[in-house]
C-alpha cells in the first residue's frame, strides 16, 4: 500500500477553511497510527502562498495546484486536478472535509480513482493496519462502521466540527511543491456568488444553535430567538413544521430532511420533537428544551427541560444571559 496519508484541504476566499485544519489533525493521527507521513493536496487560486501553514497541523508536504482558473470551486475542474495529485502521492488513505463542497468533490474523486468512499465520518481508527471509519446513518438514528476491501483505497470525508483540531504549532511549516496540471476547458461555470458578510453563524458550524418550531406561531416571533442568538453568538435553526409553513428559509431546517447538526448546545424552543427532527439534532452535546407541553417527546432527549410558555420564558432567559455576559466581561 501507499506511502502516506493524504488530506485534501479546502481553500475559499483566500484562506483555508477551519475544517481543513480538523482534517489535517485527523490525518496526522491516522498517519502516526500507520507509521507513515502526512501530505496534503490544496487546489485553488493563490493557495501556494498559504500552503506552508498546514504544517502547523502536522502536514509534512503540500502539493499545490495554483491557477487563476481555479478561483472558484467547480467540481468539473477541481476533481481532475485533485485526482492527478493524489495519484502522485500514492496514499494509503485520503482524508477530506465533509463540508458542502467537500462532500461534492469526494464523491466525484472517489469515482475517478475507483476508490471506496465513506462520507461524513465522525471517527477514524486503524486496527492492525486496517482502517475503519464510523459514520451516522439515518441522520444519526444509527451508526455504521465502514471497512475497505483489500487493495481498495479508503477515501474518508470528516464531518465538520467533530474531529479534534490540534493547537497549531506556529513555528512549523510544511514543504510546498507546485504541481502543474493541464486544466481542460470546463463545460460548467460559476455565474455568481453571494456570501453573507453579516457575520451570521452557519448552522453546521455553530457551537450554539437555537431552533424554533411550530410553537413559535409565526415568522415575526423568531425575533425572540434572534435576540437570544445575538447575545450567545448562536445560529438560529428551525423545525420542518416551521419551514413548511414558510416562516423560515429551508437552509435553516434541522432534521433528517434538512441539516444534521452537532453543536455544543442546542436549545429547542416550541419544538415537540418529531422523530425526524430528533435525528437531526440528537448528537448535540447538550440539549435544552422549552415547551409548554410537559408531554412533548423533545423532553426525553433534553438535558434540561423547561415547561413554560416560550413567549414568557424566552425574553426572561435572554435577559438573564445578558446579565451573565456582562458580569463575565
Amino acid at each position: 500500500m501507499g506511502k502516506c496519508v493524504c488530506i485534501i484541504a479546502e481553500f475559499r476566499h483566500g484562506a483555508f477553511r477551519r475544517v481543513s485544519y480538523e482534517v489535517a489533525s485527523e490525518g496526522k493521527r491516522l498517519a502516526d497510527a500507520m507509521g507513515v507521513g502526512l501530505c496534503a493536496v490544496a487546489v485553488g487560486s493563490g493557495v501556494a502562498d498559504k500552503a506552508a501553514e498546514l504544517g502547523r497541523y502536522g502536514v509534512d508536504k503540500v502539493y499545490v495546484v495554483d491557477d487563476p482558473a481555479l478561483e472558484n470551486y467547480l467540481a468539473e475542474s477541481y476533481v481532475p486536478a485533485m485526482a492527478d495529485v493524489v495519484a502522485k502521492c500514492d496514499p494509503s488513505a485520503v482524508i477530506l472535509p465533509a463540508s458542502v463542497d467537500g462532500k461534492d468533490f469526494s464523491a466525484r474523486l472517489a469515482a475517478r480513482l475507483k476508490a471506496g468512499l465513506a462520507q461524513d465520518c465522525i471517527q477514524v481508527v486503524c486496527e492492525n493496519g486496517r482502517i475503519k471509519a464510523k459514520r451516522p446513518i439515518f441522520a444519526g438514528k444509527c451508526f455504521g462502521w465502514c471497512e475497505w476491501a483489500e487493495g481498495a483505497l479508503p477515501v474518508i470525508s470528516c464531518r465538520p466540527n467533530v474531529m479534534d483540531c490540534f493547537a497549531p504549532a506556529e513555528d512549523k511549516k510544511a514543504e510546498v511543491e507546485k504541481v502543474e496540471v493541464s486544466i481542460a476547458p470546463a463545460r460548467s461555470s460559476v455565474k455568481s456568488m453571494d456570501f453573507d458578510t453579516s457575520g451570521k453563524v452557519e448552522l453546521t458550524e455553530a457551537e450554539i444553535i437555537i431552533s424554533g418550531g411550530r410553537g413559535m406561531k409565526g415568522p415575526e416571533n423568531y425575533a425572540l430567538l434572534e435576540d437570544m442568538a445575538r447575545v450567545l453568538g448562536a445560529a438560529v435553526g428551525a423545525s420542518r413544521a416551521a419551514v413548511d409553513s414558510g416562516w423560515r428559509p429551508h437552509s435553516d431546517q434541522v432534521g433528517q430532511t434538512g441539516k444534521v447538526v452537532n453543536p455544543n448546545l442546542y436549545i429547542a424552543v416550541g419544538i415537540s420533537g418529531a422523530i425526524q427532527h430528533l435525528a437531526g439534532m440528537g448528537s448535540s452535546k447538550f440539549i435544552v428544551a422549552v415547551n409548554k407541553d410537559a408531554e412533548a417527546p423533545i423532553f426525553s432527549k433534553a438535558d434540561y427541560g423547561v415547561v413554560e410558555d416560550l413567549f414568557n420564558f424566552v425574553p426572561a432567559f435572554t435577559e438573564e444571559i445578558k446579565k451573565l455576559k456582562s458580569s463575565c466581561s
Partner: peptide, 21 residues
Amino acid sequence: TARVRMTSLEMPVPRSAGKVI
C-alpha cells in the same frame, strides 16, 4: 464487488431525559 462496506452497526448511546427546571 464492494470497495467499501459497512461491517457493523451500533445504536447511539441513549440519551436519558435530564432535569426539568
